[in-house]
Protein backbone atom coordinates (compact mmCIF):
# COMPACT_ATOMS: atom_id res chain seq x y z
CA UNK A 1 0.00 0.00 0.00
CA UNK A 2 1.61 3.25 -1.18
CA UNK A 3 0.29 6.49 0.33
CA UNK A 4 1.25 10.06 -0.56
CA UNK A 5 0.64 12.73 2.08
CA UNK A 6 0.38 16.36 0.94
CA UNK A 7 0.29 19.56 2.98
CA UNK A 8 0.41 22.92 1.19
CA UNK A 9 -1.79 24.79 3.61
CA UNK A 10 0.81 27.22 4.98
CA UNK A 11 4.33 28.32 4.09
CA UNK A 12 5.65 24.81 3.85
CA UNK A 13 5.48 22.24 1.16
CA UNK A 14 5.29 18.91 2.94
CA UNK A 15 5.17 15.64 1.05
CA UNK A 16 5.53 12.19 2.54
CA UNK A 17 5.61 8.88 0.74
CA UNK A 18 4.60 5.90 2.87
CA UNK A 19 4.77 2.19 2.21
CA UNK A 20 2.11 0.82 4.55
CA UNK A 21 2.84 2.63 7.84
CA UNK A 22 6.47 3.46 7.13
CA UNK A 23 7.93 6.65 5.74
CA UNK A 24 9.87 5.87 2.57
CA UNK A 25 10.83 9.43 1.71
CA UNK A 26 9.71 12.87 2.68
CA UNK A 27 10.25 16.52 2.04
CA UNK A 28 9.30 19.42 4.24
CA UNK A 29 10.53 22.75 3.02
CA UNK A 30 9.76 26.42 3.18
CA UNK A 31 8.13 27.14 -0.17
CA UNK A 32 6.15 30.29 0.36
CA UNK A 33 4.55 31.31 -2.95
CA UNK A 34 6.66 28.65 -4.69
CA UNK A 35 4.41 25.65 -4.01
CA UNK A 36 2.97 25.77 -7.51
CA UNK A 37 6.40 25.56 -9.14
CA UNK A 38 7.84 22.96 -6.80
CA UNK A 39 5.07 20.53 -5.88
CA UNK A 40 5.18 18.28 -8.94
CA UNK A 41 8.98 18.44 -9.15
CA UNK A 42 9.18 17.22 -5.55
CA UNK A 43 6.49 14.57 -5.95
CA UNK A 44 8.32 13.17 -8.96
CA UNK A 45 11.61 13.21 -7.02
CA UNK A 46 10.03 11.32 -4.10
CA UNK A 47 8.74 8.57 -6.37
CA UNK A 48 11.90 8.39 -8.48
CA UNK A 49 14.20 8.21 -5.47
CA UNK A 50 12.14 5.37 -4.02
CA UNK A 51 11.99 3.71 -7.42
CA UNK A 52 8.21 3.67 -7.24
CA UNK A 53 6.09 4.23 -10.34
CA UNK A 54 3.21 6.75 -10.11
CA UNK A 55 0.93 3.84 -11.07
CA UNK A 56 1.78 2.16 -7.76
CA UNK A 57 0.16 4.98 -5.78
CA UNK A 58 -2.94 3.77 -3.90
CA UNK A 59 -3.95 6.63 -1.61
CA UNK A 60 -3.51 10.35 -1.04
CA UNK A 61 -4.06 12.03 2.29
CA UNK A 62 -4.05 15.81 2.21
CA UNK A 63 -4.72 18.71 4.50
CA UNK A 64 -7.91 20.41 3.31
CA UNK A 65 -7.63 23.48 5.54
CA UNK A 66 -7.62 25.85 7.12
CA UNK A 67 -4.72 27.79 5.63
CA UNK A 68 -3.61 29.95 2.74
CA UNK A 69 -6.30 29.89 0.07
CA UNK A 70 -3.85 29.62 -2.80
CA UNK A 71 -1.78 27.00 -1.00
CA UNK A 72 -4.76 24.80 -0.21
CA UNK A 73 -5.88 24.83 -3.83
CA UNK A 74 -2.47 23.67 -5.03
CA UNK A 75 -2.37 20.43 -3.04
CA UNK A 76 -6.07 19.86 -3.59
CA UNK A 77 -5.80 20.14 -7.37
CA UNK A 78 -3.27 17.29 -7.40
CA UNK A 79 -5.57 15.16 -5.22
CA UNK A 80 -8.75 15.94 -7.16
CA UNK A 81 -7.20 15.19 -10.54
CA UNK A 82 -5.70 11.88 -9.44
CA UNK A 83 -8.78 10.97 -7.44
CA UNK A 84 -11.09 11.58 -10.39
CA UNK A 85 -9.01 10.26 -13.28
CA UNK A 86 -6.62 7.70 -11.81
CA UNK A 87 -8.99 6.26 -9.19
CA UNK A 88 -6.64 7.06 -6.32
CA UNK A 89 -8.39 7.02 -2.92
CA UNK A 90 -8.37 10.47 -1.33
CA UNK A 91 -8.54 11.27 2.39
CA UNK A 92 -8.38 14.59 4.21
CA UNK A 93 -7.02 15.72 7.55
CA UNK A 94 -7.01 19.12 9.26
CA UNK A 95 -3.88 21.22 8.75
CA UNK A 96 -3.86 21.96 12.49
CA UNK A 97 -4.36 18.36 13.52
CA UNK A 98 -1.38 17.16 11.49
CA UNK A 99 0.92 19.63 13.26
CA UNK A 100 -0.23 18.31 16.63
CA UNK A 101 0.24 14.64 15.81
CA UNK A 102 0.14 12.56 18.99
CA UNK A 103 1.76 15.30 21.08
CA UNK A 104 0.43 15.64 24.64
CA UNK A 105 -1.57 18.73 25.56
CA UNK A 106 -0.57 20.94 22.66
CA UNK A 107 -2.09 24.17 21.35
CA UNK A 108 -1.86 24.89 17.65
CA UNK A 109 -1.76 28.48 16.48
CA UNK A 110 -1.41 29.45 12.84
CA UNK A 111 -1.47 32.92 11.35
CA UNK A 112 -4.81 33.81 9.75
CA UNK A 113 -3.70 37.43 9.13
CA UNK A 114 -5.51 40.61 10.15
CA UNK A 115 -4.72 39.98 13.86
CA UNK A 116 -6.41 36.60 13.83
CA UNK A 117 -5.23 33.01 14.09
CA UNK A 118 -6.45 29.50 13.46
CA UNK A 119 -6.45 27.74 16.78
CA UNK A 120 -7.05 24.25 18.18
CA UNK A 121 -6.07 22.23 21.23
CA UNK A 122 -5.14 18.53 21.09
CA UNK A 123 -4.02 15.83 23.47
CA UNK A 124 -2.47 12.70 21.95
CA UNK A 125 -4.34 13.36 18.71
CA UNK A 126 -7.71 13.85 20.42
CA UNK A 127 -9.23 17.31 19.78
CA UNK A 128 -9.98 19.09 23.07
CA UNK A 129 -10.89 22.35 21.38
CA UNK A 130 -11.77 22.01 17.71
CA UNK A 131 -10.18 24.28 15.14
CA UNK A 132 -11.56 27.79 14.95
CA UNK A 133 -10.62 31.35 14.12
CA UNK A 134 -9.66 33.43 17.15
CA UNK A 135 -8.58 37.04 17.65
CA UNK A 136 -5.01 37.44 18.85
CA UNK A 137 -6.38 39.87 21.45
CA UNK A 138 -8.23 36.90 22.99
CA UNK A 139 -4.85 35.85 24.38
CA UNK A 140 -4.12 39.27 25.97
CA UNK A 141 -5.44 38.40 29.42
CA UNK A 142 -4.33 34.77 29.38
CA UNK A 143 -1.23 33.49 31.09
CA UNK A 144 0.36 31.64 28.19
CA UNK A 145 3.69 30.97 29.89
CA UNK A 146 2.99 27.28 30.48
CA UNK A 147 1.21 26.57 27.22
CA UNK A 148 2.91 24.34 24.71
CA UNK A 149 2.30 26.01 21.37
CA UNK A 150 3.11 24.64 17.91
CA UNK A 151 3.01 26.89 14.87
CA UNK A 152 3.06 30.67 14.92
CA UNK A 153 3.60 31.21 18.66
CA UNK A 154 5.38 34.47 17.81
CA UNK A 155 1.94 36.00 17.25
CA UNK A 156 1.38 35.98 21.01
CA UNK A 157 4.98 36.62 22.06
CA UNK A 158 5.89 32.94 22.29
CA UNK A 159 8.24 31.02 20.04
CA UNK A 160 7.51 30.12 16.47
CA UNK A 161 7.83 26.36 16.31
CA UNK A 162 7.00 23.96 13.52
CA UNK A 163 7.73 20.34 14.41
CA UNK A 164 8.81 17.72 11.93
CA UNK A 165 5.38 16.27 11.20
CA UNK A 166 6.24 13.78 8.48
CA UNK A 167 5.22 10.82 10.67
CA UNK A 168 2.04 12.46 11.91
CA UNK A 169 -0.20 11.77 8.92
CA UNK A 170 0.04 8.02 9.48
CA UNK A 171 -0.14 8.34 13.29
CA UNK A 172 -3.50 10.06 12.83
CA UNK A 173 -4.88 7.60 10.28
CA UNK A 174 -8.04 7.03 12.29
CA UNK A 175 -8.93 10.71 11.94
CA UNK A 176 -8.73 10.70 8.13
CA UNK A 177 -11.95 11.57 6.32
CA UNK A 178 -12.53 9.42 3.28
CA UNK A 179 -13.71 11.45 0.26
CA UNK A 180 -16.47 9.54 -1.48
CA UNK A 181 -17.32 12.18 -4.06
CA UNK A 182 -14.03 13.61 -5.26
CA UNK A 183 -15.72 16.34 -7.33
CA UNK A 184 -17.33 17.78 -4.21
CA UNK A 185 -14.01 18.15 -2.40
CA UNK A 186 -13.20 21.83 -1.70
CA UNK A 187 -10.81 23.54 0.71
CA UNK A 188 -12.12 24.37 4.17
CA UNK A 189 -11.45 28.10 4.11
CA UNK A 190 -12.85 28.39 7.66
CA UNK A 191 -12.69 32.19 8.08
CA UNK A 192 -15.31 32.42 5.43
CA UNK A 193 -18.08 34.65 4.17
CA UNK A 194 -16.01 37.73 4.59
CA UNK A 195 -14.45 39.67 1.76
CA UNK A 196 -13.50 37.56 -1.20
CA UNK A 197 -10.60 39.88 -1.79
CA UNK A 198 -7.95 38.49 0.55
Amino acid sequence: MITLAIDTSFHYLTLVLYRDKDVINSIQKEAFKQQSETILVEIKALFDKANISPKDLNRIVLTDGPGSYTGLRIGMTVAKVLGALANIEVYTLSSLHVLAGLEKNVHILLDARAKRAYYAHYHEGIPLINERVVLLSDFDDLDTSNLKIFGDGQLISKEKYYPDYTKNFMDLEKYWQKINNIHALVPRYLKDNEAYHS
Binding site: S36, I39, I43, K44, T70, R73, T77, V78, K80
Partner: peptide
Amino acid sequence: IGSLHVGLIAAKTLSWYYD
Protein backbone atom coordinates in the same frame (compact mmCIF):
# COMPACT_ATOMS: atom_id res chain seq x y z
CA ILE B 1 -2.70 34.05 -11.22
CA GLY B 2 -4.96 32.08 -8.85
CA SER B 3 -7.04 30.78 -11.74
CA LEU B 4 -4.03 29.85 -13.87
CA HIS B 5 -2.57 27.87 -10.92
CA VAL B 6 -5.47 25.42 -10.80
CA GLY B 7 -5.21 24.47 -14.48
CA LEU B 8 -1.44 24.42 -14.44
CA ILE B 9 -1.23 22.08 -11.45
CA ALA B 10 -3.86 19.82 -13.01
CA ALA B 11 -1.89 19.61 -16.26
CA LYS B 12 1.41 19.01 -14.49
CA THR B 13 -0.15 16.27 -12.36
CA LEU B 14 -1.47 14.49 -15.45
CA SER B 15 1.79 14.94 -17.35
CA TRP B 16 3.70 13.37 -14.46
CA TYR B 17 1.26 10.57 -13.73
CA TYR B 18 0.73 9.48 -17.34
CA ASP B 19 4.30 10.33 -18.38
